[in-house]
């Protein structure tokens, strides 16, 4: 059977769950040796990417970017966070605030697979069509 990037990432994730450090180290070494033996070291960046996805899914972690024209006050931020929690169903959310004047007003929140649009720019764009 031919293994895919996703399979290797899952193996790596299982290795990361080993509690005893010495055992984990041996397993990682073996894992790297297997990649070397099959001449697939170049897959490593993709394996890490998949590993990150598996980890994020497992721990319910999401990165969210909130883009607004001006710095949002705490009350607004709290409201937005509530909205994000409701729609993402994730426990661990890492919020990053970005100021972008092009947004004009309101905000845009973007996670990996969710986008909340409440900006003036989007409303104006919608008028265009």
């Amino acid at each position: 059977m031919k293994y895919k990037v996703k399979d290797y990432a899952e193996v790596l994730y299982c290795i990361s769950q080993i509690k005893i450090e010495s055992e984990r180290e041996v397993a990682v070494k073996d894992f790297l040796n297997i990649l070397k033996k099959h001449y697939i070291e170049s897959w490593l960046p993709n394996i890490f990417q998949n590993f990150e996805n598996i980890y994020n899914k497992d721990v319910g972690y999401s990165k969210v970017e909130i883009i607004s024209a001006y710095k949002l006050d705490n009350n607004h931020l709290l409201e937005i966070k509530k909205l994000i929690y409701k729609n993402l169903n994730n426990k661990n959310i890492d919020i990053k605030e970005i100021i972008d004047k092009n947004v004009l007003g309101g905000f845009i929140a973007e996670a990996e697979h969710l986008r909340i649009k409440a900006s003036l720019k989007d409303r104006l764009n919608a008028l265009q069509f």
């Binding site: 729609n87 969710l114 986008r115 909340i116 649009k117």
Partner: peptide, 11 residues
């Protein structure tokens, strides 16, 4: 009225 659009997006 401010309108909030929530989309499931792919990458």
């Amino acid at each position: 009225e401010s309108k909030v659009e929530i989309d499931n997006i792919g990458r």
